[in-house]
Structures are given as C-alpha cells and as structure tokens.
Write a protein that binds this DNA or RNA. Structure first.
Lengths: 257, 257
DNA sequence: CCCAATTTGTTCGTATGTATC
DNA sequence: AGATACATACGAACAAATTGG
C-alpha cells in the first residue's frame, strides 16, 4: 500500500513533480509519522540543488494531496500530515465531478453498503454506543410541528446515520458510507431538489431506526441488514419520485418523453 | 456536486491556495470542459495581481489534484483536465495509507460490491461483451503445466474481473470495484505474500466464471449474485489462511499469541 | 509590549527550455 | 532554420508570521 507512486512511465514530469515524488518516497522509506518535520526549505534547496521556487512548488504539490502542512516562524517548517477524510473526500469528489453520477448510481452502492454496515455492527456495540443512538432518536420522537422542528429532525436523522458509520471498525466502510452520503447531498442541492423534508420518509424513518437499534442490541445481524435494506430502498424510491417530478417541471409543456 | 470546495472556515489559506480555489470556482462557473485553455500565466498574473511564483504554485496545486495540465510552447498553456481514474486512485490511496486497512476490511466491501456488480450486469450485456468474457476464460480452460502458464492464467483471471467492472454503467461502482482490487494487491505485495498462484482458487475459479457467464447471459441476477458471493467468500478464506501462515512464520519460535 | 531570531511566504528580473509555424 | 509564444527555472531581495526573551 503506497501513496500515489502510480505514474505512467512515458509521462515526463516537471522538476517540482520529480522532487515531490522523491520527498514522498523519502518519507515512506524512513517511516516518518504524521507530526514529524521535514528538512527546511533551505536544506532541501541545497540537498536537491534546485532553486527555491522549484522546491516550494514541490511542497505545494504534497500539500495539495494532504500529505504535508507547513507553518511559518521558529519551530515552523514542513510537517508530515495524515490525509484528512475531508481532503480525501474532496479529492475523490473531483474525479466524480466529471463522471456525472446519477441518483441511481449512488443508491446502488448505498443499498448494499448500509445494510452491510448494520449487519456488522449487530451485537458489537457497547451499551454507551447504543444509548447514544437512542439519544439521537429521542430528539425527534414527536411529530414536528413547525418547519424549524422539521429541519432539526432532518439534521438529527442524518446524524444518526453518521454515528452508525462512525462506529464501524472498518475505515474503508466508514469512508465509503460517508462519501456516498456526501455525494448524494451534493447532487440533490446542485439540482435544486433539496434533501426532502419528506414526511413519509420521516415517519417510516423513525420506525426503522427504533427497530434497527433493537436488532443491534439483540445482535441480530440479519434483521439489522434487512431493516436497513428496506429503508434504503424506500429512500431511493422517494428520491427518484422527487427527481422525476422536478425534471418534468423543467420540460417544455407538451413535450414527449 | 462540486470539486473540493470543502474547507474549514477558520483555516487560513496561503495565497496560492486561495488563487487555486478561485480558479477552480471560475472554471466551474463558466462550465469549462476538459481540453479548454485557461488564461496564460501572464494573464493570470495581471488578473489576480500577484507575482509569477504565486500563480505558478496555484497551478501546481490544481495539477496535483489532476484538474489541469500545462504544456509549454506556442499553443501551450494550462488546460482543464478530466481527473483520471489513476490519479483518483492514487490520491485516495494516500488517505488509506494512514488508515492501516486489513485484508478483512477490504473483503468486507468486496463481498457486497462484486455480487451487486454481477447482479446488475445479468441480462444487460450484449453478445459481444459476453463473447469477450468467454474469450478470456478460454485462455485458461486447461490446467497450467508450467509456472509461466500459471502466471498467465492469474493475469487472465484478474482481467476477467476488470472486464466485468468495465461493463458496469455505474461509474461509482466501477471505480470502487477497481479501487478495492488495487488496494488488496498493494497490501498483499507490501506484506510479502504475493497474490496467490493458489491452485484451489484457480480450479474453483474457472468453474465459477463459467457458471457466472451462463447466469449473465440468461439474465438470472440472483444466480449471478450468489455465484460471485460464494467466490468472494472463498477467496477471502484462502487469503486469510495465507495471511495467518505468513504472519506466524515471522513470529519468534515459541512465542505465545 | 516590543524586539530579535527563525522559518515560510511573496516579489521581480532574467534566462532557459520547448513546441509551433 | 529561425522567429514566436508559451511554460519552466533560477537567484536575490523583501515581507509576513510565529516564537521566545
């Protein structure tokens, strides 16, 4: 498992890119950990025999990848940095920006990952963790009266999902769950159909969360899987409904299709 | 869906980073497509009122993210570039470099994604595509005699998987399937237990691929799903076996655990 | 509060490399 | 081959931020 060493062989790299690769390899060879300091700019200049600007560009490349951070002042310098989830999400989002994902594409993934998450958590949560989940559910056990309350409930329900992901011991699963949720949110807002303060989804939502927590506590993995699978299918259906409604609104009247 | 605009509010950005963000936003606003040219360095210098070095660092940042490329010479300049899958894989790999994924983590994902891929392809492939799959299978229908043949068969079997992913109409699924396969390969080599020229996996492998293609042609999604689910479970089991064998070899003799 | 030391950040002028015509 | 247009690289000077006295 190695940081971005992937590079087509024939591709000619600019000098800053070469330097960035060398530094990266150097860091890995020495097994430097996040927080440790790289040689200063001036040291790198003499070490690589290159101009200051070139070295700085190399460091910027590493910084853009989230692998280092730099601070000014005494005790400052360039430091190895653990790539944050936010950075990874943003960088991967750039890729999919050009891929034109659909709602269906994202739900195809969510419909298998979320149930798997639920199943893997069943029987493996502490009482504290389960209590925390129930705590969030309690925040919207009563039907919302105002639109303000509705909004709060929506946030709480998203938080419930985020907490589940957080509890997974699998970093890959955790990341993918959150990434797909983010992509979905991005797409919905960018297309103008804001994430549904959908009454039906909420009501069935509360019910499913209660049953899910029961299954998690009881260690019934298959029940947990089924509950979340049904919920995802339902959410997908409602989302698709809203999508077509909105798309049709923007079609010229009388248009076929 | 928006490229890496995610940024903590309090975080102070260096000027090149600011410029990079501005250029990115500018490109998106104008809906510039891959291949289109950004203003030249000198134009950017006057437009942003900053020195050459600063602008150059900004461009390096965008280049590191895979969003632009620059070419020298007349007609050269900085061009919008579609983030490649290789780049996206490498950047995301950087994130997981610090997360210490296990074989189990990766297989937990593969065990749900690969069957889903198979199910979604059932009945949706053209005769040409199915023929292409059968073509690859034919390359190792006979048991390997030499280690060279064994290696070829291994490559062909990986290719079979890659082709399946390629045929998915879902870019997200396609990426995730390939990414997880790459991560698995990276981990196995970095830990020294090279991807198994495992006889058992091969023999059951050939069988499962034949049955899979039949299910795909027949449009039996559930059969396809089951076949690949079983294969994944089997592969996971064999991999785990090799993992423990190898780990034990490196423990001091007589050590407990 | 200010001053000095240290390290990154920014600027500008100049020169070189590279691809196109 | 030579002129042109562009990015690339260098070097020296100056600015800004942070830390400690």
């Amino acid at each position: 498992m190695s940081p971005a060493t992937t590079r087509s062989i024939t591709e000619r790299l600019s000098r800053p890119q070469q330097v960035a690769e060398k530094i990266k390899a150097w860091v890995m060879e020495n097994g430097w950990e996040p927080g440790e300091r790289l040689p200063s700019e001036s040291e790198l200049i003499t070490r690589f025999g290159m101009a200051k600007g070139t070295i700085r560009e190399a460091i910027r490349i590493l910084e853009a990848q989230g692998l280092v951070r730099s601070r000014t002042g005494p005790g400052g310098g360039v430091f190895v940095h653990q790539v944050s989830e936010e950075r990874a999400t943003a960088l991967l989002g750039n890729y999919f920006y050009f891929q034109h994902l659909t709602i269906d594409d994202i739900y195809q993934i969510r419909e298998v990952l979320e149930p798997e998450l639920a199943a893997s958590l069943a029987g493996n949560l502490s009482e504290d963790e389960i209590a925390a989940l129930e705590d969030v559910i309690a925040r919207y056990s009563e039907p919302a009266q105002t639109t303000e309350e509705e909004r709060e409930q929506h946030v709480a329900s998203l938080k419930f999902h985020a907490m589940l992901a957080e509890m997974s011991g699998n970093p890959l699963l955790r990341f993918l769950i959150r990434f797909t949720a983010n992509m979905l949110a991005d797409i919905t807002v960018s297309r103008g159909f804001y994430a549904p303060p959908n009454r039906e989804l909420f009501e069935t939502g509360l019910d499913y969360q209660l049953r899910l927590v029961a299954a998690l506590r009881g260690g019934d993995a298959e029940a947990a899987r089924t509950i979340l699978a049904n919920h995802m299918r339902n959410a997908h259906r409602l989302m698709r409904l809203q999508e077509t409604v909105l798309t049709q609104r923007f079609l010229p009247e009388g248009s076929i299709i």
